[in-house]
Simulated scan of single mutants.
Amino acid sequence: MVVLDIKPGNPGPRMKGQRDRLLVQRLRILFSNHSSYHIKLLVFVVILLSTALLARRASTLVGWKHRLEEPQRDDQDLRQRYTVLVNTWKREDLLKKSVAHYASCKGVDAFRVVWSEPEPPSDELHLSLLETIARRHRRGSRAPELHFDVNLEDNLNNRFKPITGLNTDAVFSVDDDVLVSCDTMELAFNVWLSARDSMVGFVPRMHWLQSKGQTPTYRYGGWWSVWWTGSYSMVLSKIAFFHSKYLELYTYQMPQSIRSYVANERNCEDIAMSFLVANVTKAPPIWVKGRVVEIGSSGISSLTGHSHRRSRCLNHFVTLFEGMPLVPSSVKAVNSKREWFW
């Protein structure tokens, strides 16, 4: 055993040398083979505790940063909801059925009714729709709001006017005489959330090249041509999701000549919107498989010469857009849980 008599004061060189030798001797004893197991265990515990402390600190920092970048709860909730934009005209019975159906669907934030009649909606109609929404909306969720957007003139462009006070990015554009199930609506909305600049809908149509040359001409392809070929380049806005920004673009950025053509022809506002979206995205829309139920009488699509008029619209819009922006696709979104083959 080494005994050192160390007194207070500044140690001299000899005492410092003795301390150094003592420290070396103790370290040798500490790291001798007899004690190596305990030292290794101690080092392991120290490393483990240090790692845990650093990981906890790092996770705290990452968690703080993540919470900082997350939108507020209200904003996040609105991102998961959509506005139902209902186009109607002198069919209050169909409007009531439409609102009653969609009021029970998940994710509906509000109803905006495009009203283009000489007389404003009656208080009785307004109250009836509010009562229907209160009765049919999903329990445990906030009842959707109801607003009438009243227009002084009957114009097909009214359905794409910008909406004051709109809370959501997503707009579900629908005519008052078509219905789709809430489950299929939810599927389509989730598809739209994955491609927020696209149009996502249930009624596909196609443009077909009819003749080449210096000025190509096109033919409008209805449902049967889509069914036969599996190709489409439009989804009709009579029942489709799109971003609310396109309302602004349609009304204020798209050439006035196109809106004038739609107003005069009383047709093709849906083709004009398809052209607009395709011109912005340079991409096709997305067709969602779902059964669409028509609850009203046949519309203008059943009239003689409808396809010819639609073809004229196509070619006129190609001239005004200075090219064909529509992009063909054969992709179809389906619910794999409900399909035998997918």
Rank of each mutant, 00 (worst) to 15 (best):
Glu69Tyr: 11
Lys161Ile: 07
Leu187Pro: 00
Ala195Met: 12
Leu125Ile: 10
Asn190Trp: 01
Leu53Met: 10
Tyr250Ser: 03
Leu95Pro: 03
Cys105Asp: 06
Leu166Ile: 10
Val180Asp: 04
Tyr220His: 03
Asp109Ser: 14
Ser244Thr: 13
Gly140Ser: 07
Trp192Gly: 13
His101Asp: 05
Tyr261Glu: 07
Gly201Cys: 04
Asp169Lys: 10
Ser141Ile: 08
Asp177Cys: 05
Arg139Asp: 09
Cys105Ile: 11
Arg28Met: 08
Arg21Ser: 10
Lys289Ala: 10
Ala134Thr: 11
Leu247Lys: 00
Pro285Met: 01
Leu30Gly: 06
Tyr37Gly: 12
Glu186Ile: 10
Glu153Asn: 09
Cys268Lys: 04
Val99Met: 04
Ala58Met: 10
Arg266Ile: 14
Arg81Leu: 04
Ser36Tyr: 11
Thr168Phe: 00
Arg28Gln: 13
Leu78Phe: 03
Val45Leu: 09
Leu129Gln: 06
Tyr102Cys: 05
Arg67Pro: 02
Leu156Tyr: 13
Arg139Ser: 15
Arg21Gly: 01
Asp169Phe: 02
Arg309Asp: 12
Leu166Arg: 02
Asn157Asp: 14
Leu249Cys: 11
Asp77Tyr: 07
Val262Thr: 04
Tyr82His: 03
Leu49Ser: 15
Ser244Lys: 09
Asn33His: 12
Ala55Cys: 12
Lys90Ile: 11
Pro8Ser: 14
Val150Tyr: 02
Asn190Leu: 08
Leu78Gly: 02
Trp228Ala: 13
Val191Leu: 01
Asp123Trp: 01
Tyr102Pro: 00
Lys65Thr: 13
Asn267Glu: 15
Gln18Thr: 11
Glu92Ser: 12
Thr304Arg: 14
Gln25Asn: 11
Lys97Thr: 13
Asn264Phe: 07
Lys7Trp: 02
Gly296Glu: 07
Val280Cys: 12
Arg81His: 06
Leu303Gly: 07
Arg291Gln: 15
Ile258Asp: 06
Trp115Tyr: 05
Ser181Gly: 09
Thr229Pro: 06
Gln80Arg: 13
Trp208Gly: 01
Met273Asn: 03
Met234Asp: 02
Arg57Tyr: 11
Glu145Thr: 15
Arg73Cys: 09
Gln256Thr: 10
Ser307Val: 14
Arg291Pro: 03
Ala52Phe: 09
Glu92Trp: 06
Ser116Gln: 11
Asp175Gln: 05
Ala263Arg: 11
Val318Met: 00
Leu22Pro: 06
Ile239Tyr: 03
Gln214Thr: 14
Thr60Ala: 12
Arg56Asn: 08
Arg67Gln: 09
Gly17Glu: 08
Pro284Met: 03
Ala263Asp: 13
Gly201Trp: 00
Asp176Ile: 09
Arg136Ile: 04
Ile258Tyr: 00
Leu48Gln: 12
Cys182Gln: 06
Gln18Ile: 15
Thr217Gly: 00
Gly230Tyr: 01
His308Ala: 15
Arg28Ser: 08
Trp89Val: 14
Ala333Trp: 00
Asp77Asn: 11
Glu265Gln: 13
Gly299Met: 00
Leu129Ala: 07
Tyr220Val: 03
Asp93Glu: 09
Trp228Pro: 01
Ile295Asp: 04
Leu125Cys: 02
Trp89Cys: 14
Arg159Asn: 13
Val150Phe: 01
Ala283Ile: 04
Val84Gln: 05
Glu70Ile: 06
Arg67Cys: 08
Gly290Met: 02
Thr88Pro: 03
Trp224Tyr: 10
Thr304Leu: 09
Thr168Tyr: 01
Leu303Pro: 02
Ser307Gln: 13
Phe172Asn: 07
Trp287Gly: 08
Ser59Asn: 09
Val288His: 04
Gly63Gln: 06
Lys65Gly: 14
